[in-house]
Design a protein around this nucleic acid. Structure first.
Length: 278
DNA sequence: TGCCAGGTATAGG
DNA sequence: CCTATACATGGC
């Protein structure tokens, strides 16, 4: 009889799980009633909103080393627990009606601090794909190359070593199209240890973007998304077609980055989540 | 059924 | 620095 791990985490400024999931930063959350089932860090957890934070239940077999305290640390970091998003969403210039509305509409969105390798591979996949198609490809990669999370039927995202072992046929079967070779080469570079997360984390924003862009299939947009969501570089402002559309419509082409340091990435996320209004 | 998707590499100005 | 074009495949 194993004990059920369940605990509460306060998230400053609160969270709206639905809005956060729909804001196109994470692609593996599984909706389960009012909660979400989330695979990450070799675990499976069930998360639901509670009193300005979340209740978190561990669904996978606990590892010997993960005591409740370290579990709380891991997931507090993942949900960016310490940053007060209620202050950030009040940052928009009152004269900027568009951004003010986007931020208000985005109340409850947080920037999730995801695993950097998973984020990189996921956003390489994302180029010229719809969000539902991205999710399908990511799940196929996990099922083909990843291992089952202990005590569950859900697959973990593969390590670089696991991913590089896939044949080109196996990769193609994940619906990757021309991105298959990008994925393979990136997995090889990481498996060789040239790009370990610790090294990348030590780089400043500009160097991190430049280093990521040296990988084939990683351009400025994928590099910025990886840095924002996989390295929690909250000041970076990825520009995709939707953001560009907003910039052309409301800003004469460029965003006033100087007003929102060091949280331009969060403003970007509010705008992206608001894209249906464009 | 055809169009489009959270872009990038490449060639050429 | 900029612009034009090809690109594999799924989802709707």
């Amino acid at each position: 009889m194993k004990s059920v791990e369940k605990f509460y985490i306060e998230l400053k400024g609160g969270i709206d799980l639905d809005k956060t999931e729909k804001s196109g930063q994470c692609f593996r959350w599984i909706k389960d009633g009012d909660a979400f089932i989330i695979p990450a860090f070799g675990m499976l957890v069930k998360v639901s909103e509670a009193r300005g934070g979340i209740d978190l239940e561990l669904l996978s077999s606990p590892k010997k080393k993960t005591d409740p305290k370290s579990l709380a640390e891991i997931w507090s970091k993942y949900f960016d627990a310490g940053l007060d998003y209620s202050k950030i969403r009040k940052m928009p210039d009152k004269k900027d009606k568009f951004l003010s509305e986007a931020a208000e509409s985005g109340a409850g969105i947080r920037i999730i601090y995801q695993d950097s390798f998973e984020t990189l591979i996921t956003f390489i996949i994302s180029q010229r794909k719809s969000i539902p198609a991205i999710k399908t490809s990511v799940e196929r990669i996990c099922e083909t190359a990843g291992r089952k999370i202990p005590g569950t039927d859900v697959y973990d995202f593969p390590t670089p070593d696991e991913l590089k072992k896939l044949s080109s046929d196996e990769l193609s079967a994940c619906g990757l199209g021309y991105r298959a070779s990008y994925i393979h080469e990136t997995a090889e570079v990481f498996a060789r240890g040239e790009f370990d997360a610790e090294y990348l984390s030590g780089l400043d924003d500009e160097a991190l973007i430049g280093t990521l862009m040296s990988l084939k299939g990683v351009g400025v947009k994928v590099a910025n998304c990886t840095a924002l969501f996989g390295f929690h570089r909250l000041d970076l402002f990825p520009i995709d077609v939707w953001i560009q559309r907003a910039l052309d419509t409301y800003y004469d082409g460029t965003f006033p980055l100087e007003k929102y340091h060091p949280y331009n990435g969060i403003m970007q996320q509010y705008i992206f989540a608001y894209r249906g209004q464009l």
